[in-house]
């Protein structure tokens, strides 16, 4: 049976992996360390699809009820 593409589901916002450079820029702008970012598990179904490693920063473009769109960052962690 064909695997379903969960990223098409309306509940799932767009996830993108940031390059090391981009990630550092964000961290610098927010004046925080990676550990202070909200987390996302490496076993998360969406992260699995992105095929990334622990420590990567993921940019999530949420659709917000109040702001239209809002950007959120999560760092990939092991379980």
């Amino acid at each position: 049976m064909a695997r379903i593409d969960i990223t098409k589901h309306e509940l799932v916002p767009k996830h993108e992996v940031l390059s090391e450079e981009e990630a550092n820029k964000i961290l610098e702008k927010l004046n925080i360390t990676k550990g202070q970012l909200p987390k996302i598990l490496i076993t998360d179904p969406v992260v699995k699809k992105l095929k990334t490693d622990v420590g990567a920063v993921i940019k999530i473009s949420r659709t917000s009820r109040t702001a239209g769109t809002s950007t959120f960052y999560r760092v990939v962690v092991a379980e």
């Binding site: 916002p13 996830h15 179904p45 969406v46 999560r74």
Partner: peptide, 14 residues
């Protein structure tokens, strides 16, 4: 479990 943590967040709100 099926759609991930961000979807769960949206589901909680909805």
């Amino acid at each position: 479990k099926v759609l991930g943590i961000e979807a769960a967040r949206n589901a909680i709100i909805n």
